[in-house]
Design a protein around this nucleic acid. Structure first.
Lengths: 169, 169
DNA sequence: TCCATATAGTAAGTATACTGTCAATCATGA
DNA sequence: TCATGATTGACAGTATACTTACTATATGGA
């Protein structure tokens, strides 16, 4: 038998996981930007720098798979990083379509220097919880993101990204 | 003594709570939009509709406090809801600055009809976890968002929002 | 070789999210 | 009452995030 629709209250919003994920993401960005204000880097730009540092000579499409960010969005992010002279784009010899990404000296220095601030930011996000709860939340979240990988518009493909090494350039 | 900086790996990104919150938020939006595609409503627009339904005659500033969304952003959201004829803006008699928000008949109908899809979406987000883990994650997340409320740019002020009732109009 | 298909990067369009700023309006206190 | 400061909604500007479409280029098979 069909159940009567329950009256709509704000709990329909406040207790919904989607709402909590959104709020927490906004809080996380806010904390990150605050801790890292001296470096003028957003969380997305930071992640891109790390990935380019870890995969020198990666191209934009693979970069998007490695950090699971949208390809179109990433184009703009790359532009901003380039205009700040933190990265360089060089044409690939093998494939005229792709542009290979490398950190500049300045980009490598910024990445090195920002790390302590990033770690402070990441700590602050979970700070209000008891240590055991921090571990539990992180474990559950890691698990959930992994299990939901295919549900995301841009699934994480960490493996694919390694193929390019040695092939391009 | 100062510790040597550890080499930067992708784990600096993958295991960071901020990164996991971002990924999970994107997955959540993706699932919501998919389940609710028949209604052409975004998660933010849905939350606004619920809040306006629950607080008829609320103004934009209080609405922003009730759902903890940025005031500037909310202006655009309200515009879109109005252009879809889901809500109405009426001038307040008491205060010439404010515009009071109400659902239209159409808005109330959409809100009633979309609820099952929203609930399916919210379920799907946590589906991959075991039931006990879903409860645990939700509890920790609720706690963390609440404890971090003041760290967010737009803290939730559910109480404030109730004051307006009976005063305005 | 040539054609169909696939891919890389780009661009346009929409929707959040936040920063500032501004004019109009309101509330308060001298 | 009048000057001051606060509030409301609007706007401009920047940065994600995603969709669709487009060009240039690669690649595979007939």
């Amino acid at each position: 038998m069909p159940s009567k629709p329950s009256p709509i209250t704000m709990d329909a919003v406040y207790t919904a996981p989607g709402y909590l994920f959104r709020r927490m993401q906004q809080i996380a960005v806010s904390i990150f930007v605050e801790e890292c204000s001296a470096f003028d880097l957003t969380p997305v730009q930071y992640a891109a720098l790390v990935a380019i540092h870890t995969h020198p000579g990666i191209d934009a499409t693979r970069l998007s798979a490695v950090i699971a960010f949208d390809r179109s969005t990433l184009g703009n992010v790359i532009e901003r990083l380039e205009s700040k002279a933190l990265i360089e784009r060089k044409p690939s010899r093998g494939d005229k379509r792709v542009k290979l990404l490398h950190l500049t000296k300045s980009g490598a220095a910024v990445l090195r220097d920002i790390m302590p601030s990033v770690e402070r930011a990441q700590s602050r996000m979970l700070q209000p919880l008891k240590p055991a709860d921090r571990k539990a939340l992180l474990a559950l979240l890691t698990q959930l993101v992994d299990l939901n990988n295919e549900a995301s518009r841009v699934p994480l493909r960490a493996e694919d990204a390694l193929e390019h090494l040695g092939k391009a350039g």
